[in-house]
Design a protein around this nucleic acid. Structure first.
Lengths: 349, 349
DNA sequence: TAGGGTTCTTGGAACGCTCCAATGCCTGAG
DNA sequence: CTCAGGCATTGGAGCGTTCCAAGAACCCTA
């Protein structure tokens, strides 16, 4: 008994191309064409086939398509074990944007966990020839990261979230302009009347960290402000940060730009230790706009990364790369945005 | 020219079952058996085949397997748009555990974004017959969630992170015993000498919230402590929490158990407003152990959910469900752990 | 040595789709 | 009226795997 039409119901057992073809009175190939190359069909036929597809609730079987076309419409994304303290919420927003944008283009994100101890490339290889993923999105790129070279050698499309900080530039990437963020922070502080603006960064050698330091430095120099003696460094840990920022405060800094919210929080603690109030006595700016930033008191001004945009751009570049393989690499640098809160109120410098 | 053996090199173009079979001098079917039903082969043959597989670096093609077996070894996981402020880091740790455990069993996680506005079921349906996912992991379950019933009706294996708070219990789930957590918090506070212990919860009606309230209440009653006038409620927002907890503090509470870290933070603010110190003057306990908890000063005692364990259990239950379809549902309730920090130091009640 | 039961191995088909080449149909020119 | 030529559609094969049933080799017993 034919199912009642016009209801794109759940398919009973399995509606295949052949089912549709039979019902529409055409050959299976024609149904395939209706979906993949509609311009080949006479409008009349096309319409009839599409209507039948709709009636039967037909959906092409991805595994069969993959087997035939050698393309899975899957994008691999390796999640690394969360380094505690590092921006976990970051990944969440990013992943969502990634997944959503990919879905709009008919792609899905296939997750794979990089075991904590592995060199990391096995996982990629496995995903590649097991699941025939069409490409990868990399994140958490580091200095001396071997993944880009490895993927390029194999001719696998990929996009990295995070530029390459050393060596030859390989492949497409999307990144956030950290220097521009800290530059804007200095600009903001100068506008509030600050002149003795310190920078609390990570130890030199981390790409992102040096980038953020550079933005502070150039903005300072642009305003003719001295940078000597106004800079300290600490690992991304609250205790160390608290200790490291001390000398800067004691040397009379009225504002601190930090390379991360964690470091900024170290400043808060160092200030409390000295019976000073963040925002009132000394301005503080963080980086990453961790959700906690707005919960602190006073709320921490911070530089927010446009994670949704990064996710979208990653997918866009990846799709572009997949469609025209040999094209010159494309690189996108996105602007972060300074979110002003109470930790940078008017200066009483 | 035969490739140099004993090096599980990357496969040249595509090594298939047939390649291996020819090289090992057996039929394709025998190679398949070597992998799927090794007990059928004579040890000698098995060994030879396996060695050949190794030499050639052969990997079965998942799409072909999926097409034939109708099982993709894929587990679907729908990520919802992150409600800001809500436990984003939660998802990160959970996802990682999920992905890792699944990988160990030869499964992978296929992400799909639930568009913010959708009813939510289309995505599941699509994943189901497009990618032939073998099952789903649900999270962010809500009162009146229709997903469980929908999936069960279709006979699709699934596991939910979060029990069903209303209606008929459907399917397997893994959840964290919130009541046990708040109970333990009260126990801890009583041990420190507190007697006037208040509870700051969410508005009634949310399953998890009521559960957490109940743990506080039963522990109070067990110790013969009054609960009347010691309870307030607020939406999960820092300002509202601050306002809501005021009367409790003014009524002389010496400790507050909050249903979330956000609410606990509201307490911090309310205390500062009254020139009281959290931890010293009034003890505060949060829930979820958000990374920010240990960054606050004083560090916020909080109840940590065992997210890694939840992830592992979800996979375990799902695999079990897939293997023996009709079995009675299995439900796992995991114990959270109270993490003690400076916000609950010795009482000076 | 023949028979019967194991144990191991094989050939053929099928999963649902898309590629390729070839067919039928129609129109317009010779 | 016939035939070239373009367009719409079709048939057949094959992607790599596993299922099914049947075949070959083997060992033991009569």
């Amino acid at each position: 008994m034919p199912r009642s039409s016009n209801t794109p119901t759940t398919k009973a057992a399995s509606v295949t191309l052949a089912t549709v073809a039979q019902r529409a009175g055409v050959s299976p190939q024609t149904v395939s064409n209706a979906l993949n190359s509609p311009e080949l069909l006479r409008p009349e036929t096309l319409d009839r086939v599409l209507r039948t597809i709709d009636e039967l609730g037909y959906r092409p079987h991805r595994a069969a398509q993959t087997l035939r076309t050698r393309s899975s419409k899957l994008i691999g994304y390796g999640i690394r074990p969360t380094a505690p303290g590092v921006s976990a919420p970051v990944m969440d927003r990013f992943l969502h944007a990634l997944s959503q944008t990919a879905a709009e283009a008919g792609y899905r994100i296939l997750l794979f966990a990089t075991p904590p101890d592995s060199a990391g490339l096995d996982g990629y290889e496995e995903l590649l020839d097991l699941h025939s993923v069409d490409g990868f999105v990399l994140s958490g790129t580091e200095r001396g990261d071997r993944r880009q070279a490895w993927l390029e050698k194999r001719g696998v499309p990929f996009v990295a979230f995070g530029r390459m900080w050393s060596g030859r530039q390989i492949g497409d990437w999307v990144d956030v302009d950290g220097a521009s963020g800290t530059d804007a922070a200095v600009e903001h502080l100068v506008g509030l009347g600050h002149r003795r603006i310190a920078f609390l960064g990570w130890p030199r050698g981390s790409g992102a960290g040096d980038d953020r330091a550079e933005g502070w430095q150039r903005a300072m120099q642009r305003h003719g402000l001295p940078v000597r003696g106004r800079r300290a460094q600490s690992v991304d840990d609250i205790g160390s940060a608290q200790a490291a920022v001390g000398p800067l405060l004691d040397a009379g800094a009225t504002a601190v730009v930090a390379a991360s919210d964690m470091l900024a929080l170290g400043c808060y603690h160092a200030l409390r230790e000295r019976r000073l109030l963040p925002g009132t006595d000394v301005a503080v700016v963080g980086f990453d706009d961790n959700p906690m930033a707005e919960l602190l008191s006073p709320g921490l001004s911070s530089i927010a990364q446009p994670l949704e945009a990064v996710g979208r751009e990653c997918v866009r570049l990846l799709l572009a790369r997949m469609s025209r393989a040999g094209a010159p690499p494309e690189r996108v640098l996105l602007e972060p945005a300074l979110v002003v809160r109470d930790s940078t109120s008017a200066s009483d410098d």
